[in-house]
Design a binder for these strands. Structure first.
Length: 588
RNA sequence: GCCCCAGUAGCUCAGGGGAUAGAGCACCGGCCUCCGGAGCCGGGUGCGCAGGUUCGAAUCCUGCCUGGGGCGCCA
């Protein structure tokens, strides 16, 4: 159990002994570090219920504590805060417990939850762009955070692979290469195993076909028909579509791999194709859905809604399905096939109405019960210096690949400018620049709250100063370096001893805040809590490092204890950086 | 028109009932006989406006202002 949870339980018992609630005993890190290490504010809230004065109640709580041997100070301040300071012995004992245990002090969930996180959303035939950055890193980070807490977490990329762009591509390719066997309706296969198009072809065809469909009615109509026929399973179209899909997945995966983002499932909209007709039929039969202007809609408004929630369109008047249909069917699929108890969607926050409607429809249709959590953890957007969505110089949407390359190139430039890592072989320098650039990009994103829009400033992210990815990597590398140096000198880390001053004491206190931070990040679905804490921990280490000369320490026990502290600090920082999808080089 | 999100320091952003609201950058000034200066130490200004709830509000509620986003046959 974490220290803070332990203290909270102990204070909770004291409140219970006074006839109050265990929850009143909640202990938190002090807001006034100069006064105390921890504080309990429960007496303030409980005073009215107990019909007592807050300060008097606080005194009673302190008197009711079952064991005060580990406290150096317990005092009442202000209107009734209980200020708590541990003895140095108790503090070191607790930290050493974590150190000796080999972990970072995180408690595993008593009842693991099987959950799915949906955080990709790339489209077939389209390269990943800047809009895919936030869901990718936030989703990946959340997946790791929930996993670290002992849950069973499945990541699903949820490809966009069943919509009208597919028909547009089919029509476009038929115009360009009408002789391909896929378009001959008298054939049903077998078709060539080699794709007739590359990712570069698709990339060029996609926007061309898309604008053509808007401008040219005849083409648009053919594209719509092609989509419908694909969805009905025309063999040639399906075979071609499979090529599109495979070629695209290869390209998409490459970029995600570069970012360290991986998915357990490469499902897509098409995964639920078989479910669509039965689903709509069932919705109509049960009266959950109704026909409106030829389309199928589900009324999802509830009596106590603040405003009007419009009906959800489940099928077009021509009978075709659309993304609402696929999303509802996907929920059904995830319940049936995976049996998950929670589905968290890390998808652009602008989709919030869509998800609200889809979730309501799924519940109304009885597809999920109240025991299944459906949540849209919406992400904000990446904006340019003008506060508007980031664009390239020529006004286009920046590709994710380009963003990564820019970040890595800038990192390489900075290394050269500052004459850093110059003594390493060029191959290693390149590898370092890559990790530094990626850390800048990802930490620059993750330090912002999930739902906030933020201004993308590569110069700031790639700067090696202050709260940046490179600083965190640098801190971890320094820890590795000192441990390596100690090992070379034959000095072994030992058990963590009571602190000798404010720097090692503060570092110990910082180390003990990891478990609550990870839990908070999970509860809010907000990796920025982890990102900010990782920085605070690294900064606390830097202070300690600056003021306590570890390897020069003559007292061998103290020196070994400090090395043990470094060891735990590196372990915790590495754990946190992994949660943030950041990779640390051996040296830099 | 309705709904959602946001408005916190010069800038970029945290914090979401608790004491004196934080960080980074920028700006000014210190610290290298150095376990890595990508560092450390010091310096200061702010919760859009108006009400309300509360012992206590940046935080919760209401209204307004400003900005962004969304609102059935695209995804």
């Amino acid at each position: 159990m974490s220290l803070i949870a332990d203290l909270s339980e102990q204070f909770g018992r004291a409140f219970v002994a006074l006839g109050l609630e265990p929850a009143d005993g909640g202990v938190a890190v002090s807001q006034r570090p100069e006064l105390a290490q921890f504080q309990c504010n429960g007496a303030l809230g409980a005073a009215k219920r107990a019909g007592r004065q807050p300060r008097e109640l606080a005194a009673a709580v302190i008197a009711a504590l079952d064991d005060t041997s580990r406290f150096a100070d317990l005092s009442i301040a202000g209107p009734g805060f209980i200020n708590i300071t541990l003895s140095d012995d108790a503090l070191a004992t607790f930290v050493e417990g974590v150190h000796a245990g080999g972990g970072v002090g995180v408690d595993q969930a008593a009842t693991p939850v099987k959950m799915i996180i949906d955080y990709g959303g790339p489209n077939v035939a389209k390269e990943l762009h800047v809009g895919h950055l936030r869901p990718a890193v936030i989703g990946e980070s959340l997946k790791r955070i929930f996993f670290a807490l002992g849950n069973e977490v499945i990541g699903d990329v949820h490809l966009g692979d069943w919509g009208s762009p597919m028909g547009q591509l089919l029509a476009e390719l038929e115009d360009r290469q009408p002789d391909l066997p896929y378009f001959d309706e008298s054939l049903t296969g077998p078709y060539p195993t080699e794709s007739p198009v590359t990712m570069a072809d698709l990339n060029e065809m996609y926007p061309a076909a898309s604008s053509k469909a808007k401008a040219d009615d005849e083409f648009g109509e053919r594209a719509r028909r092609a989509t419908a026929e694909l969805q009905k399973g025309r063999p040639g179209y399906l075979a071609l579509w499979n090529h599109f899909r495979e070629v695209s997945i290869d390209a998409i995966k490459e970029v995600y791999d570069e970012l360290g983002v991986t998915f357990d499932l490469w499902h897509g909209e098409s995964t639920v194709a078989e479910r669509l007709d039965p689903l709509i039929e069932r919705l109509l039969d049960s009266g959950v859905a109704r026909r409106s202007e030829g389309a199928v809609v589900v009324d999802v408004a509830l009596p106590d809604d603040k405003g009007e929630i419009p009906p959800l369109l489940m099928a077009k008047s021509d009978g075709a399905t659309l993304y609402t249909t696929w999303d509802v069917a996907t929920i059904e699929d995830r319940v049936d096939e995976l049996g998950v108890a929670a589905m968290i969607y890390v998808v652009d926050a602008r989709q919030s109405l869509h998800f609200e409607q889809v979730f309501r429809a799924a519940r109304k249709a009885g597809i999920v019960g109240d025991d299944v959590l459906l949540e849209h953890a919406g992400n904000g957007t990446v904006n340019g210096p003008d506060g508007k969505p980031l664009k390239t110089r020529d006004g286009g949407t920046p590709l994710l690949r380009g963003l990564i390359d820019d970040a890595v190139a800038r990192a390489a430039d900075r290394l050269a400018e500052n004459d850093l890592a110059s003594e390493y072989a060029s191959e290693e320098r390149t590898a370092i620049a890559r990790l530094v650039g990626l850390s800048a990009l990802k930490y620059g994103d993750l330090q912002n709250h999930r739902a906030s829009d933020y201004i993308f400033d590569l110069d700031r992210f790639v700067s090696f100063e202050g709260r940046t990815g490179p600083y965190l990597l640098y801190s971890a590398v320094r820890m590795q370096s000192i441990l390596r140096k100690a090992a070379e000198a034959g000095i072994k880390p030992g058990p963590i001893a009571p602190p000798v001053g404010e720097y090692d004491r503060n570092l110990m206190l910082a180390l003990l805040q990891l478990p609550e931070t990870v839990v908070r990040a999970a509860e809010h679905r907000a990796p920025n809590h982890v990102a900010l804490y990782a920085y605070e921990l690294a900064a606390e280490f830097s202070r300690f490092y600056e003021h306590c000369r570890i390897l020069d320490e003559p007292d061998a026990t103290r020196r070994a204890g400090w090395l043990g502290l470094v060891e735990l600090c590196l372990r915790e920082l590495s754990f946190l950086l992994d949660l943030l999808v950041l990779e640390v080089p051996e040296r830099m």
